[in-house]
Amino acid sequence: MVKVTYIAHDGSQTDIDADEGDTVMHAAVSQDVDGIVGECGGAMMCATCHCYVDAAWADRVGTRDRSEEDMLDGAASEVTERSRLSCQIKLTSDLDGLVVHLPEEQF
């Protein structure tokens, strides 16, 4: 199990235990974390699973590829250097304790 913390725009925090191999998007949706939509189911078609990786984790999460970058262009909230599509972050034991922040809106 990998622990993930989602911090909503209003500061409220949700901690969940997710399976290794799951994505940050799917883990959130399957455990009903508000603020992550994942409308296309992880097909990189919608930019509704936008999150900001906590600064402390930025190095371990990896970087976004070209397609992800392009899709983030269509995100509803501000895109920063810490922005990721959470469907593209796969949970490994290295990411146990990961903290992500959620944008104000996904549409």
């Binding site: 990189m44 070209r66 397609s67 392009d70 262009d73 269509g74």
Partner: peptide, 11 residues
Amino acid sequence: DNARAHMRARK
């Protein structure tokens, strides 16, 4: 295979 163009197209 061109997400950038697709997102621009949507706008």
